[in-house]
Design a protein around this nucleic acid. Structure first.
Lengths: 215, 215
DNA sequence: ATGTCTATCTATAAGGC
DNA sequence: TGCCTTATAGATAGACA
């Protein structure tokens, strides 16, 4: 019963290390879940370790994909923004093109997501705290900042069968649209800063927390 | 003094939400640090939120790069292994597709980071626990499982001039292509295999903990 | 907004099954 | 190996500086 003051050191005993890993991972996910809920932070995790036979996605694989997609898009936006800032001017044609690009992206996203939905039932997901994030707050995901965690798992275990747990997150097309618009909005708020590095990281985008989304 | 039993709900008060975010994020990082140390789990985090002016890398940007690099390699290896092992009952194309989907998630991050890296000199890094991971265990990172966390930062800043800042000619066509391919790729994991999802998660890789790496 | 304090809640190491 | 239990270390909300 925690008589020991937690010696912050590698646990040499294999089984106890594994046990500790599981306990603490669970605790970590719970903390993430709470942070996510209380602060309107969207979060997800990918974990793999030598202690478990398969990679875990939290709160679900779908969520991970969503979060990373959003993240990537944001990065794309930033990238473009930065390039643009260097250009100092913008042609009408370019604007059209970009907007079309965005629109197209949205279509792609639609397709992607709907397809994922279709096959989601066949997916293996192991939401550690499904109640915390998948269900109750899935609807609020739209404009919330994501968190992504990746832990490599290792474990020579080949050809195991997968457990399948579905966690269908239906995406509201309207929300997605809104989200993309937000991203576009935000690719603008930087101009002033000269410090490139800072600038690069300072990309901000609409944050649209909905306090009433089921909490 | 925590008289309240932590009502797991969105904190409506802006300042207290921010305060809570910072406290809890700190706590989360500490937990990660401990998990990392005690269980030989390599971990890193990328965080961005509306509550802080810039993206944070934990334990350091360098570490994040290392961890993701390793992750990428592992995925490559897994990919090959799976392709060889399962060629018999799954079409090569399918496997490629599936694995690539996951792999790309990493590439996505990787790409961003390398990007960031270019301007790293102008960067302000804020390693939360540099002592824990950067120094003492960086050398042991090689075979340890990584953890990656990403939190997007947002910022209600709407209504700014709405020009998409980018010249299509300046966008790396390759990247764009890749990006779109990725999106489209995901619209494929639906078709035949009902348990493909499971397959998606099944890539595994070797793990090589070194208990004597400075703990 | 940032740091400190402290009562209280939460996480969890060890044990036991 | 994995689940309980329980005592204790640790995290932290709210108050205040």
């Amino acid at each position: 019963m925690i008589r020991t003051k937690v010696k912050l050191a590698y646990i040499t005993n294999d089984s106890s290390r594994k046990a500790t890993y599981k306990k603490r991972k669970k605790g970590l996910m719970k903390k993430m879940s709470e942070l996510s809920t209380c602060c309107g932070i969207d979060a997800c995790a990918i974990m793999y370790s030598p202690y478990e036979s398969q990679t875990e996605f939290w709160p679900s694989l779908l969520r991970v994909e969503q979060v990373l997609s959003k993240f990537k898009m944001i990065l794309e936006m930033e990238k473009r923004k930065n390039m643009m800032n260097q250009e100092c001017f913008l042609s009408q044609r370019t604007i059209k093109f970009e907007l079309w690009g965005i629109n197209d992206l949205n279509l792609l996203l639609d397709e992607k997501i709907s397809n994922v939905d279709k096959s989601i039932d066949a997916f293996t997901m192991t939401p550690l705290y499904p109640q915390g994030a998948s269900s109750s707050s899935s609807s609020s995901m739209v404009a919330l900042p994501p968190i992504t965690m990746v832990m490599p798992k290792a474990m020579p275990k080949i050809g195991t069968e997968e457990i399948v747990q579905s966690d269908v997150n239906n995406i509201d097309p309207m929300k997605r649209q809104q989200w993309i618009m937000e991203l576009m909005n935000n690719s603008n708020n930087s101009s002033p800063q000269t410090h490139v590095g800072g600038n690069k990281m300072m990309f901000q985008f609409g944050h649209n927390i909905n306090p009433n989304n089921g909490h």
